[in-house]
Simulated scan of single mutants.
Amino acid sequence: MTERFWETKSLSEMNQQEWEAICDGCAKCCLHKFIDDEVDERHPTEVIHEGEQVHYSSIACYLLDDKRCQCTQYDKRTELVPDCVKLTKDNLKDIFFMPPSCSYRRLYEGRGLPSWHPLLNDGKKSAMHKAGMSVRGKTVSESTIDMDDFEDYIVVWPLGDED
């Protein structure tokens, strides 16, 4: 990879290795998100309509290793979890549910990488964890709770976007 490639290439110009490196590894994408709508039903976060709002929870996918902030089955995640969204260059513009701190979203919006990003810290996640930008120590596994109680797990910390 060329040094600071994200400053000279658009997301659509990146090769697969560069694309994968943009992920900061915060694991916020592994949190369950719910749409607040007029019908008051839970439904997948595929579409958001005017007047609706996405609520983040501290409920994490059962595949998440919450210590390392990594999917334990990354290559098979979309097979094992059918509503897991694989972020691509083609669907980036439609992923309204990614938090403001998401590095893909930041680059897409022209905001650059945050100072705590691993690419700016010798490939290490420690600055991200120290800044509180990952899910480490903040989640419960979906396999350990009753999903009917999801309201008890609504949180606002995923929306933080410190630089």
Rank of each mutant, 00 (worst) to 15 (best):
I22S: 04
D161T: 04
S141N: 03
E151G: 14
C30E: 01
Q73P: 02
Y62L: 09
L119R: 02
L64A: 03
P99G: 02
Q17V: 13
I48C: 06
L120Y: 06
V47L: 14
R105C: 07
P82N: 01
D94F: 11
G51W: 15
E109M: 09
G160T: 14
D24C: 01
P114D: 07
S126M: 10
C71Q: 03
K86I: 00
P99C: 09
Q70G: 02
D146F: 00
C102E: 06
M147K: 06
K138A: 05
L11H: 08
V140L: 05
W6G: 07
E142V: 13
A21T: 00
F150Q: 05
E3Y: 15
Y62C: 13
M147C: 04
C30N: 03
S101D: 07
F34R: 10
P100F: 07
W19R: 01
E79V: 10
K86C: 07
V135E: 05
D36Y: 11
P82E: 00
K124E: 15
S141H: 03
T144I: 10
H43R: 15
W6Q: 07
M1C: 15
M128V: 01
A60E: 00
R42G: 15
R111L: 12
Y74K: 00
V47F: 13
E38T: 09
S126K: 13
P44Y: 07
E38G: 14
L120N: 15
K89A: 08
T88Y: 11
I145S: 00
R111C: 04
V54E: 14
H117D: 06
T72Q: 12
K93W: 00
D149G: 08
D152P: 12
S58W: 01
E142T: 08
K67E: 14
I145T: 01
W116N: 09
Y62F: 13
D94L: 09
K9L: 15
P158E: 12
Y56C: 12
G110N: 02
D161Y: 03
P82F: 00
S143Q: 09
D94H: 12
M147Y: 06
M1F: 14
S103P: 06
I59C: 06
S12I: 13
T88V: 10
D75A: 12
H32D: 02
V156C: 11
C61G: 04
A27Y: 00
V54I: 15
